[in-house]
Amino acid sequence: MNLSPLELTINGILTLMILSFLYKDNPFYKFAEHLFVGVSAAYWMVQGVWQTLMPNLIARIFPGAVSSFLPDAVGKSPDYYFLIPAAFGLLLLTRLLPKGNWLSRWALAFVVGYAAGTNFVRYLQSDFVAQIRSTMVPLVVLKDSGGLDLGQSFSHLVLIVGVLSGLVYFFFSKEHKGTTGRISRVGIWILMVTFGASFGYTVMARISLLLGRMQSLRDWVEHLIGLF
């Protein structure tokens, strides 16, 4: 990202304000934290208004009113079907009212119904059926030359045993004793490897983000040195 000197300076100062929390909580950190909340809420609102609300709702219901700054609305006739999402949207805002805020449930019901309807199918398709299909792999894998591919066969065994034992661990309708207990114990080990991998990757991610900030500070310091 290429920043102007002023952008670089504000960027650097705000970065230091947040980093000051590492020493202890202080007014500089609190200032930056509160600024973050306000600016990000407004940023989302502005993007929502200009990228979705105006072109996808207002321009469709009142094309004449916005045609001076939205070329796409020029010459279009109003589409009053869009009064439906507009009404739902306005109902959602009744949540802010001291009275009548129960009306927001109607909009919420639409959102929840939509999410439930789409998630039901998509989760079953991608995260259930497709996952089971991907786990159905041969336990005996042969090399092109005809011999047993020991490494690949072992990997497939780990996959199948890992998925099944992991599922047994998550199956709480039967007490984890005897055979079930032993299988679920293998499940725990597999899950521990999974969490260990996630831990390693999380550390990696956090360090990368810190690197980004350090680079930004380095650019600012180089700019300051350049001034003198």
Binding site: M1, L3, L6, E7, I10, N11, G12, L14, T15, I18, L19, F21, L22, A32, E33, L35, F36, V39, S40, Y43, R206, I207, L209, L210, G212, R213, S216
Partner: peptide, 16 residues
Amino acid sequence: NAILTPLTATMFALLA
């Protein structure tokens, strides 16, 4: 560039 980027990025960088 000057406000939102450093604030959001440093908040997450603290986690390191």
